[in-house]
Amino acid sequence: MKHLFLSILFLISYAIKSQNYAFEAGEKLTYTASYNMSGILTDIAEVIMETSEAKTSKATLLRLKCTATTYSKWDNFFKIVDLYESYVNPKNLTPYLYKRDIKEGNYTKFMKYTFDQKSNTIKSVQRKRNNLEENKTFSINPGTKDIVSTLYNIRLIDFKSMNIGSKKSFIIVFDREEVKAQITYLGKESISTNIGKRACYKLAISSSENVLQGKNNNLLWLTADENKIIVYGKFNIPVGTGELKIKSAQGLKKN
């Protein structure tokens, strides 16, 4: 009985913790993505993270949208137009539909996941350059999320109650495979950004796959306020290293 009570308490406290108090529809965060070319950081693309409402006849969901577009000067060399979307429960960010429509140079790919949260399965549709459609249904672990909703989920974490070095784990479904990711809280740090000097939570991200390389080489800085927006990121991926810097932030829930 005691264990049952504790379990229920844990579940309730977890549910309270993962409620979305950080953002709402109408938020728009614009970033500049830079790539390290022979030791010199070069701005290559604009990344926009935007939230909006998606109304159906039964419910109003939250649409989390991420776009990455190369700056026009790169378009003749390597044009990128990526669109990532996740339609989630606005309260706890449980995903229901995820779409990834990317065009990177000559490479195109479309991926759609329809989450069935009751049976923990995903119905996926994949389309590549030849337009051949490939359908696949696969099982996932409870709590598995897509990459976009995971990014927003990080903002729901209560860092105030975390000790330096403590970790949180996520399971992300990417390319129809589950990837384990982990964030480590590294403490608070003040950094200068385009939206002013901000006190930030510093996080290290790692993954079970080789997508993110090195220990503490992939870092994120989230503002240490109620909004917890990502203002700066450093990444180390197989094709090189780079940075993500905030350019502007609009529609924040708490100003």
Partner: peptide, 28 residues
């Protein structure tokens, strides 16, 4: 071009979401 792509994608997504069983989503 991207904005149009986004709008079309959202429209299709809402159609797809309509087909899902969203009655039991607790949005309160």
């Amino acid at each position: 071009v991207l904005k149009e792509k986004e709008a079309v994608s959202k429209e299709k997504a809402i159609e797809e979401l309509e087909e899902l069983d969203l009655d039991d989503i607790n949005l309160d």
